[in-house]
Design a protein around this nucleic acid. Sequence first.
DNA 1: ATGTACTCTGTACGTCGTACAGTGTATTAA
DNA 2: TTAATACACTGTACGACGTACAGAGTACAT
Lengths: 250, 250
Amino acid sequence: MAEGPALPPVVARMWGRDPVSRHGPRPSLSLEGITAAAIGIADAEGLAGVRMSSVARSMGVATMSLYRYVGSKEELLVAMADAAAPDPPEPEGTGWRDHLTVWTRAHRDFLLDRPWLLHITRFAPPMGPRSLLWLDRGLAALDGTGLGAGERMNVVSTLTGYAVSHAGLALGAGGPEPPGEEEAAGLAEYGAILTEVLDPETYPALAAAVGEDAFGDGDEWIDDGDFGFGLGLLLDGVEALIAARRTARS
Amino acid sequence: MAEGPALPPVVARMWGRDPVSRHGPRPSLSLEGITAAAIGIADAEGLAGVRMSSVARSMGVATMSLYRYVGSKEELLVAMADAAAPDPPEPEGTGWRDHLTVWTRAHRDFLLDRPWLLHITRFAPPMGPRSLLWLDRGLAALDGTGLGAGERMNVVSTLTGYAVSHAGLALGAGGPEPPGEEEAAGLAEYGAILTEVLDPETYPALAAAVGEDAFGDGDEWIDDGDFGFGLGLLLDGVEALIAARRTARS
DNA sequence: ATGTACTCTGTACGTCGTACAGTGTATTAA
DNA sequence: TTAATACACTGTACGACGTACAGAGTACAT
């Protein structure tokens, strides 16, 4: 078990791999504490409230002290994104489909709880303990289905993407906006704006959909039913795949 | 056709609704020109290169001149996000499934072409002419399938989300990073880091997947085949839905 | 006691968005 | 023609924020 590839510093600390030092004063802070403080601020004021200075103030230390624990604000955001995830739901003995349904919905739900999570652009693959716990539980749901490792990974990635997209849509259409913006309006107003602006010649299908009141009363487009709807589509696909693997294997 | 809801100012200008003024010098700039310049910079240097000052310099005007056309940098980014989309693919007489396949893939492709698009957080529903054109063409693919307006909208939203997620994954796992970061490593290194850090007790399913080399050689996880794979799952689901609507209607 | 490594702090700088006041210009009204 | 007006553009300046850097204090090792 060679010392493998060097972990990115924050990642190392997220996993508790602090370099233990023998000299000097004991550290009075911790990465967990700092991320917790930052998360508290983000919950209360949104991401815009998270400044190195505000986080430090909320912990009663000087701004620069934080830099003993994080290399940059960017790193702090990464740590926040990981730490902010709750425990993933545990399977209840039901089948893979129910489990993944619950899992995906729980995923979306905690994104809705902390809208600022969506604003932390994390295109790097997840490496924190809590993100990976979610990944693990998602994969676990597919144990015994006969899917290969790559396929399971694919399915779970797709479901994660689905949860993220839907959370984003739902927030864009009514949730609180982080930059304190004037709230771009609900869906009804959205439809109204569209009708004002759309030329049915160039946007025939869209104009028709708006005409059919595709998002009329504000609940018809992005509500929980719609979430289940799309999720159902996906899981139907997975189900077909599993069936195909079963017959191919028999 | 009353003057409906007031359009957000940039939106109005994106649609060419400039307030024509009778006094003073003719404007020497235009929103299109500014967004084009900004897009050029973003393509060349990434989003970080897009500063009000750099955009203005590239147009040979003073920084503050831009503020006659955009209310803020934020608005400029919104305009960029819309203008950066290419023309959506036109249907070729094939069925809805082929059309949506091409459409979704084209969507992902232009996100890969302009990685910075993913970093413009746009949780507001799309309102620009080009975004709506994509939406329209997606909906058009479902004409004649018997799906309702809400259902069509849902399907297309889901596919959009899928394209975005996959582009994000693909970029996170090998593409160029905007903040000039050291490129968090390819997938192989990702797997290596995971094995170093994972405790098989707490992450059984994930450890197993890594053991099966779920992302071993760097092509097995997020490549074009995987894109088609997940997309296939989704479209299978849509197909089932269409079939259900057909029988219900007969 | 002395050295050393480490934690924490204060100051200062650079970057960037943008508020504001000013200058010139084309159109309208007199 | 002249004066008034509305508008396009510019220069300066300020405030916010991230963070580099150079100490100052502190616990352990010798």
